[in-house]
Simulated scan of single mutants.
Amino acid sequence: MLLTTILKVIWMVSAVGLTAMVLLHSPKGDGLGGLGGQAQLFTSTKSAETTLNRVTWTLTVLFMGLTVVLSAGWLDVAATAPTP
């Protein structure tokens, strides 16, 4: 029960953090030019944007992983299993 509560708190914090990270991203504005790859010629990747992308992806993986674990009920089954 305690593990489930801790994971739910981490899940909620990752949801809020992921929302904040997505809102912090600058709009790309590629339009249809992004389809052919021409937009890559004139842009440079900044260190701050790279870090922002890494944090966003980390929070995405954490959020999605915890969503699967918490919704599948795997922890509830382990907690209610009889001990020999």
Rank of each mutant, 00 (worst) to 15 (best):
G31E: 00
G31H: 00
G31K: 00
L32N: 01
L32C: 01
L32D: 02
L32Q: 02
L32E: 01
G33T: 01
G33C: 01
G33M: 01
G34A: 06
G34V: 08
G34C: 08
G34D: 09
G34M: 05
L35N: 03
L35D: 07
L35A: 05
L35W: 04
L35I: 05
G36N: 10
G36L: 05
G36F: 08
G36Q: 06
G36Y: 02
G37R: 00
G37H: 00
Q38R: 12
Q38H: 14
Q38S: 15
Q38A: 15
A39F: 01
A39W: 05
A39G: 01
A39R: 01
A39D: 03
A39H: 01
Q40C: 03
Q40E: 09
Q40N: 09
L41T: 02
F42L: 08
F42R: 02
T43D: 12
T43N: 14
T43M: 14
T43S: 15
T43C: 13
T43Q: 13
S44K: 10
S44Y: 04
S44D: 14
T45P: 14
T45E: 14
T45C: 08
T45W: 09
T45Y: 12
T45R: 06
K46H: 11
K46V: 11
K46G: 15
K46I: 06
K46T: 15
K46R: 11
S47G: 14
S47N: 10
S47T: 11
S47L: 14
A48C: 07
A48S: 10
A48T: 12
E49N: 12
E49M: 09
T50W: 03
T50S: 07
T50N: 10
T51W: 04
T51N: 03
T51I: 03
L52M: 05
L52D: 06
N53F: 05
N53E: 06
R54H: 14
R54D: 15
R54E: 10
R54I: 15
R54Q: 11
R54L: 14
V55W: 00
T56A: 12
T56H: 13
T56V: 09
T56G: 15
T56S: 12
W57P: 12
W57T: 11
W57G: 09
W57V: 06
T58R: 04
T58K: 00
L59R: 05
L59Q: 09
L59G: 08
L59D: 05
T60V: 05
T60F: 11
T60Q: 03
V61D: 12
V61N: 09
V61Q: 06
V61T: 09
V61C: 10
V61F: 14
L62Y: 04
L62C: 13
L62T: 15
L62M: 10
